[in-house]
């Protein structure tokens, strides 16, 4: 178990290292001279000598590996540079936006867990029933639907026509922020985020449940006269939800990708909207900061999912999963 854990930590560190290199490479690919960016509106006063001095001070004339090491050192101290646009430290802005994104992604994940497990199990044990066909068609249609278009349609129905729900922001302007108000603002974005990906999760649980229910041990339990309900809940469900935990970890990037667009549509004040704003105004330092932070959060999430799997199922650590003899 210790070996497996160590291996996972090592792998995560390697991926984080590579993500940092990708971010650093992107900063260098970005057009514009940081020396010019510093002068901003007073660009007319910039003399070639000043420019050389600034480049010297910033270490821009050093070899790339040295620059990378210095950059990494600053990042480790929580210094992601300053926004080209507002001059605010990028780190502070990101920390400010993280809770909103986590709230949105968290509520959507809860919705997904609830619905996909119920529907996945129901369709997994009754393949080819009308519910199965209906769920499959709905899943595939939702997967093929652009999330922002789904958002627009729901805004039209529930915001414009019916006027039931707020369609932008996190709370009503000019009013004290209350939990109920935030929840009302959360309904549409979280539903859209959950529903635009839920198809994958339902199909995953369905396949997993079906696969488990075909294994020998289920027949053995049945032969011993164990009730179907007990077989399903105590054995099949437990075993089929194990890969699901891993899967939840793997799909964090998909979830965050969705949040980027949906936050922009609903003006949800999180990291996604922040990065879209940064992209349209070409605020590169903010973009690099968000991509680096998102990468680290995702690798951590993956790692936690792996650890959870390891505790739930000893076979994972022993490298024995998936080696069962199939009927």
């Amino acid at each position: 178990m210790g070996g497996y854990l160590l291996n996972r930590i090592l792998q995560s560190l390697i991926v984080i290292f590579l993500i940092s290199i990708i971010s650093f490479a992107l900063i260098h690919a970005a057009p514009g001279d940081p020396a010019i960016a510093i002068y901003g509106p007073r660009i007319q006063e910039l003399r070639p000598a000043d420019r050389a001095r600034i480049r010297e001070n910033l270490g821009l004339n050093r070899p790339l590996p040295v620059q990378y090491a210095r950059w990494l050192e600053r990042v480790m101290h929580g210094d992601l540079g300053y926004s080209y646009r507002t001059g605010e430290p990028v780190w502070n802005s990101i920390v400010e936006k993280v809770p909103a994104t986590f709230l949105l992604a968290g509520v959507s994940t809860l919705l997904i867990l609830l619905l996909s497990i119920i529907l996945g199990v129901l369709t997994g044990i009754r393949r080819n029933s009308w519910l199965d066909h209906l769920t499959t068609v709905t899943s595939l249609t939702l997967v093929s639907t652009p999330n922002f278009w789904l958002a627009l349609m729901l805004i039209l129905i529930f915001g414009v026509w019916l006027g039931w729900l707020p369609t932008s922001g996190m709370s009503t302007i000019d009013r004290h922020m209350t939990a109920v108000d935030v929840l009302r603002h959360l309904i549409l974005p979280s539903i859209v985020l959950a529903f635009s990906h839920i198809g994958y999760y339902i199909r995953f649980v369905r396949a997993s449940v079906w696969e488990q229910s075909q294994l020998d041990y289920v027949w053995a339990l049945r032969a011993r006269g164990v009730r179907e309900r007990t077989i399903l809940f105590k054995h099949v469900l437990k075993n089929s939800l194990l890969p699901f935990v891993n899967y939840l970890g793997v799909t964090i990037p998909v979830m965050l990708s969705g949040a980027v667009v949906i936050e922009a549509v609903f003006a949800w004040p999180g990291l996604g909207q922040f990065s879209v704003e940064a992209a349209t105004t070409r605020d590169y330092s903010v973009l690099m900061g968000t991509i680096l932070m998102a990468g680290i959060v995702i690798v951590l999430g993956n790692f936690l999912a792996d650890v959870a799997c390891m505790y739930l199922d000893p076979r994972v650590a022993a490298g024995q999963l998936g080696k069962e003899v199939k009927a």
Binding site: L256, A279, A294
Partner: peptide, 22 residues
């Protein structure tokens, strides 16, 4: 493969936003 993993670990949309902005 680790390089591919690193790129997969980043939210696709965010990656596209950054590169498209550049």
């Amino acid at each position: 493969m680790r390089v591919a993993d690193a790129m997969l670990a980043l939210p696709n949309m965010l990656l596209m936003l950054v590169i498209q902005a550049i």
